[in-house]
Design a protein around this nucleic acid. Sequence first.
DNA 1: TAACTTCTGTAACAGTAGTTCCACAAACGA
DNA 2: TCGTTTGTGGAACTACTGTTACAGAAGTTA
Lengths: 277, 277
Amino acid sequence: MDGKTVAARIHDLDEQLTAAGRRAARGLLGNYPLLGLAPVAEFAAGADVSAATIVRFVAQLGFKSYPDFQRALREELEERSKSPLQRGTTPPGHSGEAPYLSAFLAQSARRMEETAALISPGEFETVCRRLAETKRTCYLAGGRFTDFLAGYLEAHLRLIRPGIRRLDGRPATSADQLIDVKPGDLAILFDVRRYDPAMLDIAHTLSRRKAHIVLITDEWLSPIARHARYCLPCRTETGRTWDANAVLLGLVEAMIARVTELGWETASERIGALEGE
Amino acid sequence: MDGKTVAARIHDLDEQLTAAGRRAARGLLGNYPLLGLAPVAEFAAGADVSAATIVRFVAQLGFKSYPDFQRALREELEERSKSPLQRGTTPPGHSGEAPYLSAFLAQSARRMEETAALISPGEFETVCRRLAETKRTCYLAGGRFTDFLAGYLEAHLRLIRPGIRRLDGRPATSADQLIDVKPGDLAILFDVRRYDPAMLDIAHTLSRRKAHIVLITDEWLSPIARHARYCLPCRTETGRTWDANAVLLGLVEAMIARVTELGWETASERIGALEGE
DNA sequence: TAACTTCTGTAACAGTAGTTCCACAAACGA
DNA sequence: TCGTTTGTGGAACTACTGTTACAGAAGTTA
């Protein structure tokens, strides 16, 4: 027919799709283009709609029959395999306007890649190794918009190893929570700009007790950096009202993944217990 | 059947193949596996043999029917698209050990870009518009590993507009929290795999009360999708123990950014108040 | 709330695909 | 060279898949 990919056609329709049609579209885009190469019944089952809806959907895309649609998918797949450097799932042939979401996510993605250049691989590895050792207690804390990161990391680390303690942000209670800190204990602190004075206090205390601080921060570096033994900065700048904390979560997930690998003996049992709960 | 690829099976037969069978084999291997996904007649034409030969060839490979053979090819293709997750944009300048963090973040970045293709721009925009309207109450809830996302979104939305309510996960209390829900109210639910039954319950209740559900989920779609008016799926698959939830946070941040823009009159005052606090 | 419009799934239909049979052609052995 | 065996393609057959019509459900508007 014409040079448009099926995926592009789907995005062109977009608004014109009905509820069930949209489910079909999602199903296809979800595992593209394989679901479309299956028989109608299977496609329908996979997208949780009826076969009739699939046929209507395909007709709406501009194909005169289902086999016709499948042929287009196959040809598309053939083209793609011919030019191996076909990156990005969004071909540049997109018409006019730049979709807000694509642009935003692409920017976040770029920040994420830049972050890899910002952090020394060796430092990252060392931090993960220290986390995988179960001998020392590990403390976690975050500020106003980063506390949830501490929570996320805590939830996963608890599955992987014992000896995890999370500090809540209130200065009054944090003092109590820090009494047990021993020299050589690990503390992971999150602090991004509009840096939190309470976090700095905690860092001071930890430093005085000779804990080893791992700081996860932004490219401008929290004042805590002076007390930190390890420092993992992320590129968060967006030029908008809010910074990109998704990059921090990306780093956290990388840590979780690496620590899971390193402590797999311990972790696998514990995770297994979770699955069977 | 078994784990062998079709290509491997062909090589196993090899000697046992007849002249025409070999032509079929050559044709298939020539543009693998696309020719096998075509109808028999086309496969036959492409390999320059008769349709009957193709059927015999497929039977020889150990498949009990042609559709069965095609299913195997599709599954194989699916597997193949899952495995090259490791192909990081590894800069060649790095000697020695593989930079784990770079590879990981590159993968996350890639998932983020793919997510843009998965979500319809119009749907995203519509959801943001609805969020920027301050007339309706907006409810938020998340599951085990996604509750923090609801929390993050809540914290920001509260700054932008009034009428935000977060539901906690406990079934006992969630019922109480839902009594005030009015038809047309918005509810943003997070649910990723190992889908949370409690979330489904909440979705049921919301659906019964005619709330409009916005579902943020993974590419396999939570069962809540059936009740959702808007559905925003993210690519989270990593092939590792844990999925990539950073992508979800990326989406959430995009929503926050867009809603901030749309409701700037209201938002700027409120944010100003925060700065000066 | 009620009438209207639009959408969606079920079930019957029709067409096309995959399958099988049979006759012929080719290769091999006597 | 002839008979036998094996491989191959054409054509009829069958079964399944894609299609379509219809009725009920859902959503929308007054």
